[in-house]
């Protein structure tokens, strides 16, 4: 059996989760702690992928990341290669779709940090970003872990958005969920079974890890 789709899914999930957290953590910190007005407008925008059909999100991403798109054209000018139907393209699409899954646990974790700790850090000479790295991040490890695990798990099972943006190019964008769909279409149930069971096992392990983290968090608090 070809395990490339499973490998691609894991690679996509790992890379997109890592980049997503690097962006989502400072963004969430800024949203939680800055006195910016109308935060709820930005938070609603971040949460949109939770309620939108993946095909709708995928469609918009396809337009924006396409050769004539707002993001696709400068990317192509800069790198000389297209974004859609590439692995890089599905990394960006997966990040966009998983952002709310990372944002919510991060927001909850950051809000739990006692603001007096931050004030204490400021008085001790820390800038807001130094306080983020020296005080907030070390005290929200469980929240970061939960965000990473949820984003990873969500990307492992991602289907609609990736199909729209990446299509099904073997070895490039044909991830496990798409491969399962195609196996079923072709009545190759044995392969579909094996890949599906592999995804179930991975998803179960991930949820188990989230629950263990939550229990540890409750115990430490």
């Amino acid at each position: 059996m070809d395990l490339t789709p499973l490998y691609l899914s894991a690679k996509l999930a790992l890379i997109s989760t890592f980049i997503l957290l690097s962006i989502a953590a400072p963004l969430t910190y800024w949203l939680v702690y800055s006195p910016v007005r109308g935060k709820y407008l930005i938070e609603s925008l971040i949460g949109l992928p939770l309620v939108l059909p993946p095909t709708v999100l995928g469609f918009f991403l396809l337009i924006v990341m396409g050769p004539e798109g707002l993001f696709g054209r400068p990317w192509e000018n800069l790198t000389g290669s297209a974004l859609v139907f590439t692995f890089t393209g599905i990394v960006i699409a997966a990040m966009a779709h998983s952002l709310p899954y990372a944002f919510q646990p991060l927001k909850t974790a950051f809000e739990r940090v006692d603001r007096r700790l931050l004030e204490s850090a400021y008085v001790l000479g820390c800038s807001k970003w130094a306080a983020f790295f020296r005080v907030v991040l070390p005290n929200t490890i469980n929240g970061l872990g939960a965000a990473a695990i949820l984003a990873f798990a969500h990307t492992m099972g991602e289907f609609g958005v990736i199909l729209m943006v990446g299509g099904s190019i073997p070895g490039e964008t044909r991830v496990a969920s798409i491969a399962i769909y195609e196996y079923v279409e072709a009545l190759r149930y044995r392969e579909a079974w094996l890949l599906s069971l592999a995804l179930v096992a991975i998803s179960y392990l991930v949820l188990l890890a989230v629950n263990l983290l939550n229990r540890k968090g409750a115990h430490d608090a």
């Binding site: 006692d114 007096r116 700790l117 004030e119 204490s120 850090a121 008085v123 005290n139």
Partner: peptide
């Protein structure tokens, strides 16, 4: 001048040591 530039020592009522 923000607190970072005032070079103060501030002891709060409680619980402001960094737990980690």
């Amino acid at each position: 001048r923000p607190p970072q530039e005032r070079n103060l020592g501030y002891v709060f009522q409680e619980h402001t040591l960094f737990p980690h």
